[in-house]
Nucleic acid binder design. Structure first.
Length: 322
DNA sequence: CATCAGGGCCCTG
DNA sequence: CAGGGCCCTGAT
């Protein structure tokens, strides 16, 4: 589907702001729906029934951060529509987040301090809706990065929409309900294995209107967790990701998966990843970051993945199997 | 060639 | 509450 450029606007994030580390997370494996180069991110975005192409560009002025947004669409958009879209972009990328308290508290930390200085202005964030993230969460389960990418790609190219905009071809996520006529075997043929059942049930759940993302955002963390755990195929690991990436809780840290455990052991304790520090001890260590536990680890985690882009880190390569 | 461990979760006993 | 089964893939 060829899209036309229908709107442009600009966003002003809070200061400090760093474009590249906010709009490119080297550890986010999703491919085919976005493209990044320094200063620019292209992203497909299914919003209120319309598949869109977005281009976000760094437009820092001498004094303050600014992001230019261009929107491509199959049809004209109302002002109301683009306003809600930009509000959602602000939300998903945490462009209104005030980082000053976090920085003030931990700028002297031995490990976090230098990372904070290096990534001054980086926001946590994820471009996906709850529904989209759930699908991503499911393909992350019990699989290495390479396999997750392969499953995601198969799904996206089977049920998504190919979009052409700004000289790029990217796939746009399908909408909830798209899988209602799809039988489980068809999903299994995409080599998602037992996850087919979860994907199918999550799609059904949304189609039935049993999950309202916007309403859930207004609830407290416990309620969000309870609601999410009702979904078939969603357990503690997936909920932990969701609470951070989709619901933006910076303080919640109750889960460490085996591969992450090995990486944290090396980074925080310089411990041989093959003899990892017990999860309990890691969680106890993160407690010192108080209300910013997840945010703190996000900073260190992203720093590690950015390093990996520029240098070979043998111990890390062994663990991630991309 | 066979076996096994992955970025879990559900279900059974 | 512990532990088996589920899927595919790459490593050994």
């Amino acid at each position: 589907m060829k899209l036309k450029k229908v709107a442009s606007s600009e966003l002003t994030p809070t200061t400090p702001f760093d474009f590249d580390s906010t709009f490119h997370k080297p550890d986010h494996f999703t491919t085919g729906d976005n493209y990044w180069e320094p200063g620019t991110r292209w992203q497909t975005w299914f919003w209120q029934g319309i598949p869109l192409g977005l281009k976000l560009a760094n437009a820092w002025t001498r004094v303050k951060p600014k992001i230019n947004i261009d929107v491509w669409s199959p049809r004209p958009l109302t002002r109301e529509f683009t306003d809600s879209l930009t509000a959602e972009i602000r939300y998903r990328y945490n462009l209104d987040l005030d980082l000053t308290d976090f920085y003030r508290k931990f700028k002297a930390d031995k490990i976090l301090g230098p990372v904070i200085r290096k990534w001054q202005g980086m926001r946590p964030g994820h471009p996906s809706s709850l529904y989209e993230y759930l699908i991503i969460g499911i393909v992350l389960q019990n699989a290495t990065v390479r396999r997750s990418i392969q499953m995601f790609k198969s799904l996206l190219e089977k049920y998504g929409t190919p979009l052409e905009f700004d000289g790029r071809k990217l796939w746009c996520f399908w909408s909830p309900g798209r899988l209602s006529t799809v039988i489980e075997q068809e999903l299994r043929d995409l080599k998602v294995g037992y996850r087919a059942k979860s994907i199918k049930k999550i799609d059904e759940y949304f189609t039935a209107g049993a999950m309202d993302e916007m309403a859930l955002r207004q609830k407290d963390r416990e309620t969000q967790m309870t609601e999410l755990l009702k979904l078939y195929g969603v357990g503690p690991a997936t909920v932990w990701y969701l609470l951070f990436d989709v619901f933006h809780h910076w303080d919640f840290f109750n889960h460490v998966s085996p591969w992450e455990q090995k990486i944290y052991s090396k980074v925080f304790f310089d411990q041989d990843p093959e003899k990892p520090v017990p999860v309990k001890k890691l969680l106890k260590h993160f407690a010192k970051f108080g209300a910013y536990k997840q945010l703190a680890v996000h900073y260190i985690w992203e720093d590690l993945w950015w390093k990996r882009k520029n240098e070979h880190i043998p111990w890390l390569e062994k663990l991630i199997k991309v």
